Amino acid sequence: MHVLIVEDNPDIIANLYGFLEPLGYTLDVARNGNAGVACATGSCHDAIVLDLSLPGMDGMEVCRTLRREYQLTTPILMLTARDTVHDKLAGFEAGADDYLVKPYSLPELDARLKALVRRSRNEHVQAVLTFGELRLDAGIGRATRAGQPLDLTPTGYKILSALMRAAPRLMTREEIEREVWGDNPPESDALRTHIHTLRRVLDKPFPQPLLLTLPGTGYRLAAPDET
């Protein structure tokens, strides 16, 4: 699980790394609100652990910015010492998915993160994703381009779904591999083969390519104004 920690307290950061990394988590850290927004919108994460008391932009404003300005749907778990009902309601109104009051149990944090990610992935199953002339109905497992059905492999479907959720942002190879294979990607260069197959289905029958490659880095979908 890939988690972004937005926290300025070095002791708390060290505790989170010490507990979560041995459980298999991949962690990124941002130490202020502005850095948190940049990191959250510049990379794919399964969840965000967000402290409220941050230098500069506080956690509440970070949450509102991610939800309203960037339309980010990544689950957000707020950490705070504020424990009144009013504080919790304000956090949920800002866009938080869960709220954990300090001091908290690290095993409980782990359990809440896993529950948030499970719920988030279930929501994706029901979602209809659209981007330009692409449409992916996860409820029935069907994808189309300009109304024409796309005959995708199961892995191609997962890759296209990930690219559509991120679009038009570039996804690194590592991000796509994590989306498709979780924490156990294949050792071979399987992703390149699956991208080749996806491109043949997605782009070959159409005049304009949608699946773009940044050599050595990753892939993205072309925005409608690029086609």
Results as ranks from 00 to 15, higher is better:
129 L>M: 13
139 G>S: 15
94 A>Q: 09
179 E>L: 00
80 T>G: 01
90 A>S: 07
116 L>W: 12
54 L>Q: 02
134 L>M: 08
146 A>N: 09
76 I>W: 02
107 P>Y: 10
55 P>Q: 02
126 Q>N: 14
64 R>F: 12
79 L>A: 01
86 H>S: 07
85 V>T: 05
170 L>R: 05
142 R>T: 11
93 E>N: 11
131 F>I: 11
84 T>C: 00
136 L>E: 08
102 K>F: 06
173 R>D: 01
122 N>W: 15
131 F>L: 09
158 K>N: 06
159 I>S: 07
165 R>G: 12
138 A>E: 12
127 A>Q: 15
134 L>E: 04
118 R>Q: 14
159 I>P: 10
126 Q>F: 10
110 D>C: 10
167 A>M: 13
94 A>W: 15
116 L>A: 10
130 T>M: 10
108 E>C: 07
107 P>L: 13
76 I>D: 05
89 L>Q: 04
179 E>N: 02
173 R>S: 01
176 I>F: 05
119 R>T: 12
93 E>D: 14
163 L>E: 02
150 L>C: 06
158 K>W: 14
154 P>H: 08
123 E>S: 12
103 P>Y: 13
135 R>I: 12
77 L>S: 03
101 V>G: 05
122 N>D: 15
111 A>M: 14
179 E>M: 00
140 I>E: 11
165 R>W: 10
85 V>N: 00
61 E>H: 09
178 R>G: 00
55 P>W: 05
177 E>M: 08
97 D>I: 04
178 R>I: 05
113 L>H: 11
179 E>Y: 09
117 V>P: 03
145 R>H: 09
59 G>D: 03
141 G>N: 11
111 A>F: 11
105 S>K: 08
169 R>M: 05
66 L>I: 01
125 V>Y: 13
102 K>I: 00
128 V>D: 07
133 E>F: 15
142 R>L: 12
54 L>A: 02
128 V>R: 15
132 G>N: 08
76 I>A: 02
142 R>S: 11
113 L>D: 07
153 T>V: 04
166 A>G: 04
114 K>E: 14
67 R>S: 06
165 R>H: 14
143 A>T: 11
84 T>I: 03
114 K>M: 13
111 A>I: 10
99 Y>R: 03
73 T>P: 01
161 S>E: 13
127 A>M: 13
158 K>T: 02
64 R>K: 11
123 E>V: 15
88 K>H: 06
165 R>A: 11
85 V>F: 03
125 V>R: 15
59 G>T: 04
54 L>I: 01
114 K>Y: 09
83 D>A: 04
115 A>I: 09
128 V>W: 12
121 R>C: 12
132 G>L: 05
91 G>L: 00
93 E>V: 03
87 D>W: 06
112 R>Q: 10
134 L>D: 05
70 Y>A: 01
